[in-house]
């Protein structure tokens, strides 16, 4: 078995495009769920809005790339309002139900055959929309960059822009969460009525949290669109949201570093178990009758699931969580 290759591939993953995408998605969820207590199970919907906005703007309308970005952000605000207006006055579960449905609705509309010319239908959008974005890149798209671990010029550019966004949003989150604004969100997470009784417009703060978390999710969608070769509708299924939640919980909710480190660990575990299992099968240490190539794809998620279970048992607050806070839940 080529252990060096396994390690190299596994260590590449926590810095790669997937880790960027899930870190961004999880930062948004951390604001909504971690700090405000809102159950947004439709983060993937915001990602789809972002990805399709940049894709369709360039491929179909031939607009400049930044128009697509602006459009994606504007539509994300609209989506957040649509989701929030009917539900945020109600109990928390209503938002959860509506958001989980919304993500699926967006995916199903985008893959509809009647829209094939517009959104690419089930085949998705080919990657032409990426060209103007890579035209801005100082790197050669085809060349390899890095040391020991190598990335293509494309990925390298997406990673640099993506991790910069992660840094900017995390710094913003850090500022917000020590401000009076953040104090209100954290208070809402615990008891809305207490916050109302002190003259704060709880509904509006929940709406702001939903909108801003959704906007960051939209950026995750941009990263998804530019980081992958195309926009595929079935890449935007509900499981994406839950993987982002898994990453967040691994890292620790309501912590600035939680979504970032969580996403990196998530992708390390996924890639490492994938590579190990493949290596073991190739060496016949595991019979290929027992585990086929497609099954490995599933087993690695089982391993992540086991990891999460162990985490919940031995370190329920997540990697960065605060045990003292958790103990208060028992009250």
């Amino acid at each position: 078995m080529d252990y060096e290759l396994i390690m190299r591939t596994s260590l590449e993953a926590p810095f790669g495009v997937d880790a960027v995408i899930y870190a961004l998605a999880a930062i948004g969820i951390n604001l909504q769920f971690g700090y405000t207590g809102l159950l947004n199970f439709g983060q993937v919907g915001f990602m789809a809005v972002g990805a399709y906005s940049v894709g369709i703007s360039v491929n179909y309308y031939h607009w400049p790339w930044w128009v697509g970005v602006g459009l994606g952000l504007a539509l994300s605000v609209v989506l957040a309002l649509l989701l929030g207006i009917p539900t945020l006055r109600l109990r928390a579960d209503y938002l959860a139900i509506v958001t989980i449905a919304s993500g699926e609705i967006i995916r199903l509309i985008m893959r509809a055959a009647v829209l094939a010319d517009f959104s690419g239908g089930s085949a998705g959008l080919p990657g032409n929309y990426r060209d103007p974005f890579f035209a801005l890149s100082p790197f050669d798209r085809g060349a390899e960059y890095g040391f020991w671990i190598d990335w293509s010029g494309e990925n390298f550019w997406v990673m640099i822009v993506g991790w910069s966004l992660v840094a900017i949003f995390s710094f913003g989150m850090f500022q917000l969460m020590r401000s009076p604004w953040g104090r209100i969100l954290k208070a809402i997470r615990e008891d809305e009525d207490a916050v109302r009784s002190l003259g704060k417009n709880v509904y509006w703060y929940k709406m702001q949290s939903l909108i801003i978390g959704g906007l960051i999710g939209c950026f995750a969608g941009f990263a998804f669109a530019y980081g992958k070769g195309s926009v595929q509708p079935d890449n935007y299924s509900t499981s994406v949201t839950f993987f982002a939640y898994a990453a967040l919980i691994l890292g620790g909710t309501a912590r600035i570093w939680g979504p970032i480190v969580g996403s990196m660990i998530f992708w390390f575990i996924i890639t490492f178990s994938d590579q190990m299992l493949r290596g073991l099968v190739a060496e016949d240490l595991i019979s290929s009758d027992l585990l086929s190539g497609t099954q490995i794809g599933v087993v690695r998620f089982i391993i992540v699931g086991l990891g999460l279970m162990l985490l919940v048992i031995f370190r329920p607050q997540g990697i960065f969580g605060d045990k003292k806070e958790l103990a208060l839940d028992a009250h």
Binding site: Q175, G182, E190, K200, I212
Partner: peptide, 30 residues
């Protein structure tokens, strides 16, 4: 309805009215 995961001081500060830092964009500028 004490907000148990906030410090006692933060509970108190939450009560004050008309805080400029309660607006999103001002919150970003400490």
């Amino acid at each position: 309805k004490a907000l148990s995961k906030l410090s006692v001081l933060d509970n108190m500060k939450l009560g004050a009215k008309n805080q400029s830092g309660e607006r999103f964009f001002e919150a970003l500028a400490p």
